[in-house]
Design a protein around this nucleic acid. Structure first.
Lengths: 165, 165
DNA sequence: TCATGTATGTTATATCGTAACAAGTCAAGG
DNA sequence: CCTTGACTTGTTACGATATAACATACATGA
């Protein structure tokens, strides 16, 4: 697999995580510049915090970390940074968990499917255009116009599945 | 289309709604009996309330209606009834809206896709085993075991799409 | 009938999210 | 340089969603 392609298994496999986080931060910087938006210190730090794990984190958990680092202590600080990241495709909102996770393939148009481990809350992201095609086909059949589609699968990641046996 | 098959377009089309609601209530009764669980007055009334529209309703909205009908006034009353309905496949939770909608095909194992109109909040439910197959295939590739999968598509229903043009 | 599990209702509180406003930052044009 | 306007960050205050814990009632079967 080429190094610049997203590897959906990465969240569940051993890997050089600091490397993987840095790579994404670099891309986030470049993307922000290219789009003329500002990856300010809070926003950048928020992304770093999300990138420290492949878990989904609640806004208040992120806020606590931001506060420790000298940023504001109030909810809007975290929500605004997270909203920015989501809006620009640098993070995703995982609705089932009321939480957020860094996007592992920023900048690529992708229709992500989230695989959420119910035991360790890690989240893997897989990109499957065919899935979106199916959704669009079903929508067409009833005259519905899909703008965004969200697929969240709950289950067990390989490590936690082993542990449960 | 046979009358006992779910028609995914029903939510967006004109139809004899009181008939459609009664049919589902009947099935809910039979299903509950068959499974040895009790469709008690609050639970039944909760399902009726959801069935009055094809919209998703928030728990507090449902609670208000229940209170008017002489049931309890506190959140757990609504949440417990809704949780029961969801657990037994008689209703679905629409996470994007923090809301609940009656299931239009109770008793059938189905992997529902929800088409949520962002203008009128109506929800249509479409059942597509192929979609689930795709999700499972993507999961297999990374060693993930899917237990439940959730597809929520946001967009415009036919009526609201017309209105926006 | 009475023991047991299940349902319903309550109070209280946890958790998640946003509106509205004040103050600071930054870049472009005068 | 310095003003202006758009944007960003921070605050207070509140709204919306959800659950824990406990008391009471009710069905069911030994």
């Amino acid at each position: 697999m080429p190094a610049d392609q997203p590897n959906p298994a990465v969240a569940f496999a051993k890997h050089d995580h600091s490397d993987c986080a840095h790579r994404i931060l670099d891309r986030a910087e470049k993307l922000s510049e290219a789009r003329g938006v500002r990856l300010t210190p809070v926003r950048r730090r928020t992304l770093e915090i999300l990138l420290e794990s492949h878990r989904a984190m609640g806004a208040y958990e992120v806020l606590e970390r931001l506060a420790q680092d000298g940023f504001g202590h109030q909810p809007p600080v975290a929500y605004r940074a997270l909203d920015f990241l989501v809006e620009h495709g640098l993070a995703h909102r995982i609705r089932r968990l009321n939480a957020f996770a860094a996007c592992m393939a920023p900048g690529q148009t992708h229709n992500p499917v989230f695989f959420i481990c119910r035991a360790c809350q890690s989240v893997a992201e897989s990109s499957t255009p065919e899935l979106r095609d199916r959704i669009d086909a079903a929508a067409d059949a009833i005259g519905f116009e899909v703008e965004r589609a969200n697929v969240e699968a709950l289950g067990l990641c390989p490590a936690c599945a082993d542990r449960e046996e």
